[in-house]
């Protein structure tokens, strides 16, 4: 972690893809810093590069150039084994389509990071942590349910609990409310906010929903592969989406 509390830093990231014969530049020199315990939202229209940026920040993909430093470690050039360890220990992901393992029940889905790491999730610290996150997302008592027995909002809460259970250095959420109704989406955003507020969890959220972004401390507006603007929001308790929406409107978003 940097002396200024930075836990995540991106330095001049670029990412290019080949699409048929065409070279597509998804990111064109993005630099950013995220402080420990900060809740940052990446906003932008479809194709702006925000999801690509999130994938690079979480070590799911490698940049074409530039580097990502997470918790003092350069993660953009890691080999498969090191990248796997990083994902196991320092990052947590929440996706738009929940992506739960359908054959595992709630408890087993939440326990997955421990199971994969070879830690017995039924005993000791692991069990305590699972209990804690299930309490956080209000799913105690639903441990034996399978994903198909849960509502969409509940499934996303399970996914959130799974992402939080290993106490990652950073939680990366890609459109976590994109597949939820208004009420369920609100619940998830509240859960994210609480994890940040109560647990000090660092969060990077990708969204195109201003209401979701309004839960963040800071909004980075991504457009055309670059950070086009940065919006510092006020105290969370006072937050309303209205001013943010006004500002985004000024940016033509």
């Amino acid at each position: 972690m940097g002396s200024d509390g930075t836990i995540l830093e991106a330095r001049n990231l670029t990412k290019s893809y080949r699409l048929g014969n065409r070279e597509v530049e998804a990111l064109r020199g993005v630099s950013l810093r995220v402080r420990r315990g900060e809740f940052v939202a990446l906003m932008g229209p479809s194709g702006s590069g925000k999801s690509t940026l999130l994938q690079l920040l979480g070590g799911l993909d490698r940049p074409t150039s530039g580097e990502v430093v997470l918790d003092g470690q350069v993660i953009s050039r890691l080999g498969d084994a090191q990248a796997t360890r990083l994902r196991r220990e320092k990052t947590g992901f929440v996706f738009q389509f929940f992506n739960l393992i359908p054959l595992l029940d709630v408890y087993e889905n939440v326990a997955l990071p421990f199971t994969i790491a070879g830690v017995d999730p039924r005993h000791g610290d692991a069990a305590a942590r699972i209990h804690a996150v299930l309490a956080l997302v209000d799913l105690l008592g639903r441990e034996r349910n399978r994903p198909d027995q849960l509502s969409a909002g509940e499934q996303q809460r399970v996914a959130l609990a799974r992402a939080l259970v290993s106490r990652p250095a950073i939680l990366l959420a890609d459109e976590p409310t994109g597949n939820l109704d208004y009420a369920s989406g609100g619940e998830i955003l509240d859960e994210l906010w609480r994890s940040c507020d109560e647990l000090g969890q660092t969060i990077v959220l990708v969204t195109h929903d201003a209401r979701a972004a309004a839960h963040a401390d800071r909004v980075l507006v991504v457009g055309d592969g670059k950070i086009r603007d940065e919006i510092e929001l006020g105290r969370r308790a006072d937050r309303r989406a209205g001013p943010l929406i006004a500002r985004l409107a000024q940016l033509g978003l």
């Binding site: 994902r87 196991r88 220990e89 996706f95 992506n99 997955l112 994969i116 790491a117 799974r162």
Partner: peptide
């Protein structure tokens, strides 16, 4: 495919 993607993102190695 997607499930395997989730497992990998959650920390499962390619060898696993």
């Amino acid at each position: 495919v997607r499930e395997i993607g989730v497992l990998r993102a959650t920390g499962m190695s390619s060898r696993q």
